[in-house]
Design a protein around this nucleic acid. Structure first.
Length: 257
DNA sequence: GCGACAG
DNA sequence: ATCTTGTCGC
């Protein structure tokens, strides 16, 4: 049974068309300067009283010290299904609101999923980059398109005759790094490497952790109060200087600085 | 028609 | 992504 809180139903055809249109705004040119602050984005889900609830999480990290500078959560019902190639339409429902407040302070955005290593060259990382007007990088744990090849001693993913992602072997498994928006493959790898402490880069890893902790709280019917949110953030990254909470329709989001 | 298929 | 028991290893 597919319980959905929306009125309109999702159209894969229109979504694909939207990707084709949005992809015309794609740029693979790095604006220049250093990537001092990186924002990591991730989404997790839970079934609450029959409805799919999405938890979007964002964590802003200082690239040189790996210190957490800020966090944000957005929780809301999600009715868009997951379809390979159309991931962004599901995750962006909660990811974009969670990212909005912190994105202006980030030099680059890291997203859980692919960038141009996608059937239409427009994965979720590219989508996020174009929508937020920021440089973005996709960091995925599994391959979606293309074949593995070795170029100059470097393991890459080749799709449509071009290298679209670099494969970095990590303890626990490989990660696929691909340009999202306003960045090239080489720079994307250059930006991600200093952030690697565990299998996934810190921004994305902590966003995943933060979102998972919040989701577990939802499942326990926890009180969605200030202390609860603060607990999530403290447990995920150890940071909680100040906190702002605002209600948005059925869902809500919080920001911690 | 058959296999592949981010999270 | 999420569900889900026991099990292997530090």
């Amino acid at each position: 049974m597919n319980s959905c809180a929306c009125n309109a139903r999702f159209s894969a055809g229109r979504a694909i068309e939207a990707q084709r249109i949005l992809s015309r705004r794609l740029s693979l040119k790095w604006p220049g300067g250093e990537a001092r602050r990186a924002l990591g984005l991730d989404a997790s889900y839970a079934r609450v009283e029959g409805v799919d609830v999405g938890v979007g999480a964002a964590v802003l990290i200082d690239s040189s010290t790996l210190e957490t500078l800020g966090c944000s959560l957005h929780i809301a019902p999600v009715c868009v299904p997951y379809i390979p190639g159309l991931l962004a339409f599901r995750e962006l429902q909660v990811m974009a609101p969670a990212a909005s407040a912190l994105a202006p302070h980030a030099d680059v955005i890291l997203v859980d999923g692919h960038g141009i290593a996608h059937p239409r060259g427009f994965g979720i990382a590219s989508h996020v980059g174009v929508v937020l007007g920021k440089p973005s990088v996709g960091v995925a744990k599994r391959r979606l398109v293309g074949e593995i090849a070795v170029l100059g001693g470097e393991k890459v993913v080749v799709s449509r005759g071009a290298p679209v992602a670099v494969v970095i072997d990590r303890p626990g498994g490989p990660i696929y790094v691909s340009p999202g928006h306003m960045i090239d493959l080489k720079t994307a790898v250059y930006v991600v490497k200093p952030l690697l402490k565990h299998r996934l880069p810190e921004p994305t890893r902590l966003a995943d952790l933060l979102g998972r902790i919040a989701r577990n709280g939802l499942k326990r019917q926890a009180t969605l109060g200030k202390e609860w949110i603060e607990g999530c953030v403290v447990r995920a990254s150890g940071c909680a200087r100040s906190l702002a909470l605002r209600l948005e329709g059925l869902g809500f989001s919080v920001e911690v600085w």
